[in-house]
Structures are given as structure tokens and as C-alpha cells.
Design a protein around this nucleic acid. Sequence first.
DNA 1: GGAGGTTGTAATCGGATGATTACTGGGAAA
DNA 2: TTTCCCAGTAATCATCCGATTACAACCTCC
Lengths: 202, 202
Amino acid sequence: MSSAPVDQLDRRMTAVERREAILDTASAVFGERGYFGATTDQIARAAGISQPYVVRMFGSKEALFLAVIERAKASLLQSFRAALADWRAEGPADGDPCDALGPAYLELLRERGVHTSLMQSFMQGSDPAIGRAARDGFLEIWAFLRDEAGISPEAARGFLADGMLINVLAGLEMPRDAASRPAAAELLAATLGDKAALLPGA
Amino acid sequence: MSSAPVDQLDRRMTAVERREAILDTASAVFGERGYFGATTDQIARAAGISQPYVVRMFGSKEALFLAVIERAKASLLQSFRAALADWRAEGPADGDPCDALGPAYLELLRERGVHTSLMQSFMQGSDPAIGRAARDGFLEIWAFLRDEAGISPEAARGFLADGMLINVLAGLEMPRDAASRPAAAELLAATLGDKAALLPGA
DNA sequence: GGAGGTTGTAATCGGATGATTACTGGGAAA
DNA sequence: TTTCCCAGTAATCATCCGATTACAACCTCC
């Protein structure tokens, strides 16, 4: 008996579709292993295509990584802008915009590799091209919080700090230890509440 | 005219001295480039010895990295325990222990690579050996804050979050942009005040 | 139906990297 | 002086990785 035809398109993709598919996969692999730890072959296998095709489509591994973090930053800002607009449309004008941005940040954890690939780029500040892009991206988030969302420097610092702790718990894949280590469970509960299930490793 | 004899010992080191020297150097190199990005040859050259000697002394690159982060964690806990003891000896009993631990954490920035090499390990949670060691180390810090320092889960979370933001600014080498980008200067001031000069890139 | 552009791969190359082996030199003790 | 251990290196190896080249399969439009 032949298996039911799952929604598996074995037709050839357009270059644009394939590019998006590679970016999705590369986001996850770079996020897990980092720029140097991830190989173009791992990305290619995970995407179901050949290694040369990956590098030819983006020109180089570095260009692919830069595209990944650029796309992650765009996803993040788009989520933030949407959340801020919703919050302003329905919320009271005297609340804290961070109350809207925080949940948006957690929802983004469903998209694989956004937080971790950005974080991996943040740890490569000494690299000429990647460091430049990473600092630019981070400062763009800072400018959004300060200028568009109108958050004070102190509150913006606190919001970013919370985000960085979440990113670290994602990089650590801390939920792996949640069942066996009470300290891990306590840490995850204090940081993410019941949203810890969205982290990698869960 | 021969140059004045700077304190340069060209005699051979004992294995114990050399081991410490390699750990110092490896801490800086791993902190900058990460586990996969750093090569044993880069570490050897920076330490002024040959690449095979580095590998032979620690058995493997992975064992060297594990020794680096183990030593970084030990430095961190030692600083924290000393700061906590001082604070308890002279301070009032009703203050916040984080007020003592925070400055100790910043002073540690003078030791090259402590924050960044730990942070690099935190981003390798999916690696069997490194991820295990990274989670163990992070949970040991958490246990110190909760049990030894007696800090509440909420306050400990906030303290760690601040630390992770500092680590990210170190990984980004954000001071590189402090002069040319007002946003970078504002972010650094809001996070570290005048202690931003201790970050890499300054 | 065939011509041409586009998606995609097999084969392969050169360089980098971690590791291994065999060796050297110096200093202290006998 | 000779012996012998220990710090340290030169040479080299096998593997991996990113990149290049040449080629194959497929779809579309005339």
C-alpha cells in the first residue's frame, strides 16, 4: 500500500523559494553551532540539497551568515513594530511598551534560530565583517527601543538584559536539564515562566 | 646598544607554569573567536610556543577548552565568594548582596577572556561535552546566588540578565563604536557607566 | 518538438587544521 | 663527565571544508 501523499512537493523550487528554504535551515544550524562551527555541508544536508548549491546561491559561507542575521534582525524588528502598533491601538497610553514587546520576543522563539543566530553573531565582534554587522544590528534594536518605542535608557537596558538572558538559556539548551536538575527548573521558571517550553532543548 | 633587559624570562618554564600561560592565552583567543573559530595554532603563536606542544599538554583542543571554561568559572566564583565575604563583614545586614557582586563582576573584566570564553561555551549547548559543562557551570552560578548569597529567584534572574548583557557587549566589542555612534555611547553608559572602558574593544 | 535558460549535482581541488611521531637541547644529579 | 629526564620543536599525516568546474535534468516558450 502506498503511503498517503503528504504535502511533499518534490517539484523543483524557484530560486527565490530555495533561497528562503536555505535561510530557514541555515538559521537553525548557525544558531546551534555558530559561524565557524556550522559547515555548509551540514546546512545543505539539512536543507536536502547539495553543498555546492548552497555556497553558489549565496557566493560564500560568510555572505550566507550575514544574510541569516540580517533576516533575523528584520524578523525581530517586524515583530516589535507590529506588537508596538497593536499595543498603542488598544492599550492605555500610560503603560509600559515593554509589556507588549516582551511577549512578542517570546513568540519569536517559535521561529527556529532567530535568537541564537543573532547571539552567535554578537560573540564575533572581533571579526571585521561579522562584527560590523552584529554591532550595527544591535544598535538598530537599541535605536528602536529608544526612538520608536520611546523607552528610557534604563528601561531599555533592562529589557535588553532580559532578552540576553533568554538568548543564553536558548544557546545552553537549558530545558535539557529541567527535569533532572531542580536548579534548572527554578531558573527557567524565574526567567520564562511557562514559556520555557519554547526554548531549544525542550 | 643593547636594549635594557625587560622582565623577559627566556629560561624554560616548568610544565605547571607553561600550563597556566597557555590557559591565559587560550582564554583570550577562545573568548574572541569561540571554540570552533579559534585554532590551536593561533593559541600557540600567541603563547609563543609551538602548536604540537599546546595539543600535547592538554590532550586535545576540546580538553583545553573545557579547562579554560572550568578555570573561568572558578575565577568567577572565587571573586564572588570574596566579595560576598567582604560585604558581610563590613556591610549592614539588610542591604542587597548584588551591590557587592556587581562590582566584583566588572573587576573581573580586567582578566582577559573570562566573560567571553564562558559566553562562547554558553552558545554551544548542543555539543555533548561542552554543552554539558556549560550548563553545569551556569547552574553552579545560579546555585551560588540562591543558596550561598541568599538572593531571591527574581533578583538572581535580574542579576544574571545584567551580566549576560555585559557579556554580549564584551563579545560585540561595542566600545569600538563608542566614539562614532552616539547610540553605542548611550548604550554603554546606561549599562556600565564609566566601567565601559574595561570591555574588549575599548 | 526542440531550444534555451534555470535548477541542481558529481567530482574534485587546494588550503587549513588537529593530531601524531620522532627528534633536540639543556640542566641536574650521580 | 656521563646519564637521563623533561621542556620544547620540526616534520608530517589524515581529514575536513569551502570553493570551483563541468555536467545533467527539467520546465517553458516558441
